[in-house]
Simulated scan of single mutants.
Amino acid sequence: MSFFKNHVGFNITGAKLQLVEVDYKESDTSAEPAGFYLENVDEEFFTEFWDSSFTETKIINILQNAFNEITLRKPLQTNFISFSLPNNFFKIFQLPVEAKITDSDLRDHLKWEVSVLYPDYDPESFIIRYIENYNGEDKKVKQAVVLAALKKYLKIVHKFSVRNNLILKYADNAHVATDTFLLNKSAVSILMDEKTFSVSVLKNKNLQFFKTYEINSVTEVPVILNEEINLFPVIKSGIDNNQIYMSGDFVSESLLNKLGEVTGYKFLLLNPFEKFKISSSLKTSDFISNKSHTFSSAAGMALRLI
C-alpha cells in the first residue's frame, strides 16, 4: 500500500498560478517502476498582474479563473493541496537571539520586533514563523530567520481552497519551498521574481541566512549580489564547489553569464524534477524539459506530505 497519496503544490507569483501534482506509484500496482511520478505540471497567467490593493473578492476571482483554466486542461487527481507564496506576502528579517530564550518569550519578542520594524502594520495581522540556527562559534547566541506572513493572504488561499472543495495542508514562503531540493547540501540559492530576488544559505539542513532585495531592473542583480557576497561572510562560506543555484522566473542565459562574469562563481539552474519519474502524458512537456527551474517552489510544496 502506498504511503503517499497524490498531492498538489501551487505557487503564486505576481503574474500567474503554477501547479505541480505528484503521486507515488507502487511497482506491484503499475507496469511502471515504483517511485514518485509527476502527474501534472502546468501554469496559467492571471487576467491582470496581482496588486496588493486588490480586494479579497477580486484576488480570489483572479485565482479562480487561473485555476479553472488549468483544471479544464487536466482535472486534479486529489483534493490535498499546499501553497507557496511570494516574498512580498511576507515581512522577512534576521536577528540574533539568546540561545536559552524560551519559545514563548521568543514569540513575544518577535512580535515586538515586527511592531518596531513595521509600525504601519498591526502585529496581530501577521502569523510569525521563525527558523533558528547557530551561526558561528558563540553557542550562547543563535540566529533566527523570521518570516511574518500577512494573515489576509493566508485567509485568501484558505477560502479559495474551501470554495473548490480542496484540503489545504500547508502554506509557506516560495524560496523556503524551493530549498526543499537543496536540504542535503551546503548551498547558496537565489529565487528570482520580476521585482525582487532573494538569497538563502543552507548548511547542514539549516537555514543560515535569508534576505530579499527589491529591484527595478534585472540589470541590478549582478551588482547587488556581488556586493552582498563580499559584505556577508556567511554567503561566501556557504558557496559549495564554486556553484550558486538559481530558480524562478526571469532567469535567462544572459543573466547567468553576467552573474558569473561579475562574481566569479558558476550559476546553475535548479532542476526540481531531476529525481522524479515522469508520467507518460508529460514526456513532451516544455515545462519539464526547458522551464523546470520556474516550478521549483510548486514542486517543493508538492513534496510536503512526505
Results as ranks from 00 to 15, higher is better:
residue 282 L to G: 02
residue 205 K to E: 11
residue 116 V to T: 12
residue 92 I to H: 03
residue 114 V to R: 10
residue 227 E to G: 00
residue 26 E to Q: 09
residue 42 D to A: 08
residue 182 L to G: 09
residue 214 E to R: 12
residue 28 D to V: 04
residue 6 N to C: 01
residue 10 F to R: 14
residue 283 K to D: 13
residue 295 F to D: 04
residue 117 L to F: 06
residue 212 T to I: 07
residue 248 G to D: 10
residue 102 T to Q: 08
residue 16 K to T: 05
residue 259 L to E: 05
residue 117 L to W: 02
residue 44 E to M: 12
residue 181 F to C: 06
residue 69 E to P: 04
residue 261 E to F: 10
residue 17 L to G: 06
residue 102 T to W: 03
residue 206 N to I: 00
residue 82 S to M: 12
residue 223 V to I: 15
residue 90 F to D: 07
residue 68 N to C: 02
residue 195 K to I: 00
residue 235 I to Q: 09
residue 143 Q to F: 00
residue 78 T to E: 07
residue 290 N to V: 01
residue 4 F to W: 10
residue 128 I to F: 05
residue 273 F to E: 09
residue 214 E to G: 07
residue 287 F to H: 13
residue 26 E to F: 00
residue 38 L to Y: 11
residue 177 A to S: 14
residue 194 E to I: 00
residue 289 S to H: 07
residue 268 L to W: 07
residue 282 L to W: 06
residue 262 V to L: 07
residue 214 E to I: 00
residue 20 V to C: 06
residue 21 E to W: 05
residue 115 S to P: 12
residue 151 K to G: 02
residue 218 V to C: 03
residue 119 P to A: 01
residue 292 S to I: 02
residue 20 V to A: 02
residue 296 S to R: 09
residue 28 D to A: 02
residue 58 K to D: 12
residue 236 K to P: 10
residue 177 A to F: 06
residue 19 L to R: 13
residue 219 T to Q: 07
residue 294 T to Y: 00
residue 17 L to T: 10
residue 188 V to R: 02
residue 241 N to W: 13
residue 198 S to T: 14
residue 68 N to T: 14
residue 199 V to D: 04
residue 197 F to E: 09
residue 118 Y to D: 13
residue 44 E to T: 09
residue 208 Q to N: 10
residue 97 V to R: 03
residue 13 T to W: 15
residue 30 S to Y: 10
residue 167 I to Q: 08
residue 165 N to H: 15
residue 57 T to A: 14
residue 275 K to R: 15
residue 54 F to T: 07
residue 80 F to G: 07
residue 229 I to M: 08
residue 190 I to Q: 06
residue 160 F to W: 12
residue 9 G to E: 08
residue 276 F to Y: 13
residue 80 F to L: 15
residue 246 M to E: 06
residue 246 M to T: 07
residue 130 Y to G: 02
residue 93 F to S: 01
residue 48 E to P: 05
residue 248 G to N: 08
residue 107 R to N: 14
residue 237 S to W: 06
residue 114 V to E: 10
residue 76 L to S: 07
residue 163 R to A: 14
residue 118 Y to T: 11
residue 77 Q to F: 01
residue 226 N to G: 01
residue 116 V to K: 15
residue 164 N to M: 11
residue 176 V to K: 04
residue 59 I to V: 14
residue 97 V to I: 14
residue 273 F to Y: 08
residue 20 V to K: 02
residue 164 N to F: 15
residue 74 K to P: 08
residue 231 L to E: 13
residue 150 L to K: 08
residue 73 R to G: 05
residue 47 T to V: 12
residue 53 S to C: 04
residue 298 A to K: 10
residue 127 I to D: 13
residue 103 D to G: 07
residue 279 S to C: 05
residue 293 H to I: 04
residue 234 V to E: 15
residue 288 I to D: 09
residue 166 L to E: 09
residue 181 F to S: 07
residue 46 F to Q: 15
residue 61 N to M: 06
residue 294 T to L: 01
residue 261 E to R: 08
residue 213 Y to K: 01
residue 97 V to A: 05
residue 118 Y to F: 12
residue 270 L to N: 11
residue 122 D to C: 03
residue 257 N to E: 15
residue 302 A to W: 06
residue 229 I to R: 06
residue 242 N to I: 02
residue 233 P to F: 05
residue 256 L to C: 05
residue 91 K to S: 13
residue 24 Y to P: 11
